[in-house]
Amino acid sequence: MIEQDWLWGLAGGLLIGTAAALYLLVNGRIMGASGIIGGLVDGSGRATAAERIALLAGLIGLPFLGAMAMGPVDTNITENPAVIIAAGLLVGVGTRLANGCTSGHGVCGISRFSLRGIVATVFYLLAGGLVMVTFRHLLGVI
């Protein structure tokens, strides 16, 4: 199972890409998680609220059913509440400022050679890597 992680990754990735392709070609929209949620939070997506909620229902619902069928899922979420709150705030503010996250800029942006998507992905990967060096290897907090 461990050795096949990359295969599960590839299979899961293909499913994620197929989901994004379906949403693009059928509904005419970009499947970006932060944009879909953000539009509901700040009201900018009020006109398409039903569609957004339907997508989120699938996004939450299927893993729920999957976990029921397959048994416990490892999330390994940290138990340090300060780290969780800081991380959540940074992700919330950052994705709205940048207008996208891993799904919008990463999957949907890179696949159309969008310069914004590529630049965003380079910067969030670099920042994430630097956080690992600083907070895991130097400070040992995460």
């Binding site: 992700v91 630049v119 956080v131």
Partner: peptide, 24 residues
């Protein structure tokens, strides 16, 4: 905003290992 936002997002992503899709 694209650069500042992506750096902030990347920091949070690294800290907890969660981004919006998987968090949902």
């Amino acid at each position: 905003n694209l650069v500042v936002g992506s750096v902030l997002f990347g920091m949070g992503w690294g800290l907890a290992g969660l981004c919006p899709g998987p968090a949902m």
